[in-house]
Amino acid sequence: MTGDQPLVLGLETSCDETGVGIVRGEKLLVDAIASSVDEHARFGGVVPEVASRAHLEAMVPTLERATREAGVRLADIDAVAVTSGPGLAGALMVGVAAAKSLAVALGVPLYGVNHLASHVAVDIVEHGPLPEPTVAMLVSGGHSSLLLVPDVTHDVRSLGSTIDDAAGEAFDKVARVLGLPFPGGPYIDRAAREGSRVAIDFPRGLTQGRDLERHRFDFSFSGLKTAVARWVHAREAAGEPVPVSDVAASFQEAVTDVLTRKAVLACRENGVENLQIGGGVAANSRLRALAQERCDAAGIALRVPRPGLCTDNGAMVAALGAQMLLKGRPASDLALPADSSMPVTQVQA
């Protein structure tokens, strides 16, 4: 170790990105990523077996690139951290096996960590120590969760999550309806810039009456996706042109309105003054703008990592691993499994 700052390498393979990140304490040295997204585009969605094969191919080249760009040697690594879940089982196993092998070969401790907690921890390397507690909203193609985080290394609580589609999934599905490419998020965001947010009044799931009572911090995007499809198909059936940018803007408004409203409510009702947003959907420009606006109005400090750190990456895993090491948490057992349905409340495997 240099000074007291441990050098930690993090591996992430829960979906279609092979991520290798290296941090020194709370400083990010490198965030190397190999993505198989282009291969999945041909299939219109992530194919688990395609992702797993790509992880195996990319593992060593990505490790190599990470150490080279960070200017460190693997022999200098003090600990290895890896996403042990949740995620695609076969994809997780490639990363977990790689991390274990690295830990054995280098003779260093291994930390199996929760993917969602890592999404929260990554902001430490961007904006410094996490305020405690923090409310975190994680929105991506795989997850939509509201979390209360008193301590990201061992106390993460679930406030709510989606009861059907993830937010990012809704973006992908609506993009398909509109004839936009996969992954849909960036294309919808771009199309929406030319459109009107109030052109079409799409439904806001779980925001009214009994629904809001029973699912205070839960989300539902399946009804919204269906409403958009129905609206577009009705237009097509009538032989009228589909105003793609208006549909995109109105859909995006419905999603981001619900997300930000519930996130701010979660902060208020838990007496928390800090909100962090992460996950791929956090790259959405309207989500960022609306969250900022509503947090400002409510006196809540908002933290959003830069887009490259919001999507899945190895830096977030390294960041959490380093926190665990710094707080003296014991390493994980070398026999730890890849747990595709690892509960969000379990920070470490």
């Binding site: 797993s52 060593v60 076969g90 196993m93 092998s101 690295l102």
Partner: peptide, 19 residues
């Protein structure tokens, strides 16, 4: 079977790379 096969291969590749 793919999943198990990959676990062994990636373990070998990474061990060799690390050393």
């Amino acid at each position: 079977p793919f999943t198990g096969l990959r676990v062994g291969i990636v373990t070998g590749l990474v061990f060799a790379h690390a050393r």
